[in-house]
């Protein structure tokens, strides 16, 4: 790994660490949220950016993590770390099963099938409203978010702890992404994106690599969902709806698909835009829609994708 790549990504993480000392309480909360959701976008980008598979159903994996953690804590009596591991495990299993079926379809059919599975999951959340509490959602009580770590009591309601946990997740996700895309797996995925039949002809097991990308991506989403539920003490059905499948796509497109930091940048910018817009209108979806259209029309490579094309050829 070249020095400047390590330096750039390290600098981003360090900058985020230092930000907590200067930011206001509100900004700390917003950045925490952005960092948790950036993990979701990073995972989405593995599948969409590198493998070239456009999924419209990632909310399903996000929701698996979300409800796995929330139900683990409130119904199964787990402590927060156990619930997190349980939710991640559920996410991996669901990604394997869904990936196995959905990857039988390709191109447009793949997008539709992921969308439909996700919608079925969303409907299932509503259907089992007795357990999931549907629209209203599950609220995790403060007492259930405290746990001892090596004898030290931890309270997830504490904003500083929350911020640093989210940062740790993001840092691990960025490092994992860097390793994955610079490894053989990453190169094969790009090869599949560029020319699937040629990659297959060269002797690579295309199906296996796509499944690997799918499961990685789905697991990142589940981790993000689980962290979201535990850190913000809430799991509701809106977080499983189609919008939450579109969000990571938008963030990735904005920041730059197939760049490691693109999804992080995209998540942050979109949050700022929506935050700014909510000052004078409630129609935040309008901004999402217009942003999608403009990106596709005029800026298909996103911010970092364009920068890489013009100046920084080395950007991973």
């Amino acid at each position: 790994m070249t020095a400047r790549i390590v330096a750039l990504h390290g600098a981003v993480i360090v900058a985020l660490f230092l930000a907590q000392f200067v930011a206001s309480d509100y900004a700390v909360l917003t950045i925490t949220r952005i960092m948790v959701l950036a993990v979701y976008a990073l995972g989405y980008n593995i599948l969409f950016g590198y493998a070239g598979l456009l999924s419209l159903g990632h909310a399903m994996f996000f929701a698996t993590g979300l409800y796995g953690a929330a139900l683990g804590v409130t119904r199964l009596g787990m402590a927060a770390p156990e619930a997190f591991l349980f939710a991640t495990f559920c996410g991996v299993i669901v990604s394997i099963v869904i990936g196995f079926v959905a990857l039988r379809a390709s191109g447009v059919a793949f997008m539709i099938v992921t969308l439909m599975f996700s919608q079925a999951a969303f409907l299932a959340v509503l259907y089992f409203g007795d357990i999931t509490r549907g629209d209203e959602g599950i609220v995790i009580k403060d007492g259930q978010r405290m746990f001892p770590l090596f004898g030290v009591p931890m309270n997830l309601a504490d904003p500083v702890l929350r911020y640093n946990i989210a940062l740790a997740f993001l840092a691990v996700a960025i490092v994992l992404c860097l390793i994955a895309v610079r490894s053989k797996i990453g190169h094969v995925l790009v090869a599949i994106r560029e020319n699937e039949s040629r990659t297959a002809m060269l002797g690579y097991d295309v199906k296996r690599y796509k499944l690997i990308a799918f499961v990685l991506s789905g697991s990142f989403a589940a981790v993000s969902g689980a962290a979201y539920a535990l850190l913000f003490a809430y799991a509701g059905s809106t977080l499983a709806s189609i919008q939450y499948s579109i969000h990571p796509l938008l963030w990735t497109l904005l920041g730059g698909a197939a760049t490691v930091l693109g999804p992080v940048l995209g998540t942050a910018l979109m949050f700022l835009l929506v935050d700014f817009a909510s000052g004078f209108t409630s129609a935040s979806l309008l901004f999402v829609g217009v942003a999608l259209i403009l990106l596709v029309l005029f800026f298909p490579k996103g911010i970092l994708g364009t920068l890489r094309q013009r100046y920084w050829r080395w950007l991973p």
């Binding site: 456009l54 419209l56 447009v108 997008m111 979806l285 309008l286 829609g289 999608l292 259209i293």
Partner: peptide
């Protein structure tokens, strides 16, 4: 095909919001 899906998703949100307003 992909760009069309993304663009029409955008259009979907725009039309929905405008209809709401």
């Amino acid at each position: 095909p992909e760009a069309t899906i993304v663009a029409t998703i955008g259009l979907m949100f725009v039309i929905q919001q405008l209809a709401l307003s």
